[in-house]
Simulated scan of single mutants.
Amino acid sequence: MVRSGLLAFSAVLALVAGARAADLTSASAPAIYAAPPAFSWTGFYLGATAGGAFGGQTLSGPYGGLSANPAGFAGGGEAGFNYQFPASSVVLGGETDFQGSTLRADYGSLATPAGVLTGSSQLDWWGSARARLGLSFGNVLPFVTGGFAYGDTHNQIALGPDSFSTGGVHTGWTAGAGVEYALTRNLTAKAEYLYTDLGTAATQLGGDGAEHTHAAFHAVRAGLNWKFDWNGAPVPINSKY
């Protein structure tokens, strides 16, 4: 009888101890986080760029032509969206940017029967709305880009004692290429080249015809973008063991 009681007491004690140990293990086990998803370029981003602009601009009209090779600073902001196709390295996106500029062309002087002809052109700001197509190599994204461009240009022409000017927003196109590198899941850096053509503007010279200025330039710039994480943070998984 005593022996049976001891056996029963031992069995109950073993059950209680096992349950207590299970409770302690469950309470003290840290949360296990799922591995973060593989890096993806998908998402919206905002950023800033800075660099230089340069190019060959021309002045032409009834008295002949002049040319200039201006150079200046360009810098501003940008915003865009990338979409990386599932199980693919192809990245398709769109980007818009706005840049302040110090680009100025001085064409020199040209002797004409109506007097000395001089001229200058200035680009105060420019922007674009472009498509982007890239090929992802993990956190490295080489890409090509192109689309619509616009800019505020001002032209000043002097012919003898008379001065003439024209200015305003002109539109055209832009195209280029670059490479972007993901420093973290959210911060990316890029280097980019763009060629922009804003077309030709005419400045009337009274009764002496018109001088035409062609605004086209190259831009080389670097930038930093903040990408809003499309995949979100890793989700915790509480251990049941």
Score class of each variant (00 low, 15 high):
Glu95Phe: 00
Thr49Phe: 09
Ser60Ala: 14
Tyr63Pro: 07
Ala74Cys: 01
Ala50Asn: 07
Gly47Val: 04
Ser10Asp: 12
Ser28Glu: 13
Trp41Val: 06
Leu117Cys: 11
Ala21Lys: 11
Leu13Met: 07
Thr58Gln: 12
Ala35Asp: 10
Pro86Asn: 09
Arg20Cys: 14
Leu13Ile: 02
Val12Asp: 12
Asn69Ser: 11
Gln122Pro: 00
Gly55Ser: 05
Ala8Phe: 06
Ser101Trp: 01
Gly47Asp: 05
Ala29Tyr: 11
Leu15Gly: 12
Ala79Val: 15
Ser121His: 02
Ala35Lys: 13
Ala68Ser: 14
Ala17Cys: 14
Ala48Phe: 12
Gly52Leu: 09
Tyr33Asn: 12
Pro62His: 08
Phe9Ala: 11
Thr25Asn: 01
Phe73Ser: 04
Ala8Asn: 07
Val90Cys: 01
Asp23Pro: 00
Gly43Lys: 02
Tyr83His: 08
Ser28Asp: 11
Phe81Lys: 00
Ser60Ile: 02
Ser109Asn: 09
Ala11Ile: 01
Gly100Leu: 15
Leu110Val: 02
Ala68Met: 01
Ser40Glu: 10
Phe44His: 02
Ala68Phe: 06
Gly72Cys: 06
Leu123Val: 10
Ser26Cys: 06
Ser120Asp: 13
Tyr107Ala: 05
Ala19Arg: 14
Phe9Leu: 11
Gly52Val: 08
Gln57Phe: 00
Glu95Leu: 13
Pro30Val: 14
Leu24Asp: 09
Ala53Val: 11
Pro36Leu: 06
Gly47Trp: 02
Ala19His: 13
Tyr107Ser: 06
Leu15Asn: 14
Ile32Glu: 12
Ala8Tyr: 04
Thr96Glu: 06
Val90Met: 11
Ser121Gln: 12
Leu13Glu: 14
Leu13Asp: 14
Ser40Gly: 11
Arg20Ser: 15
Glu78Leu: 15
Leu92Tyr: 00
Gly61Gln: 05
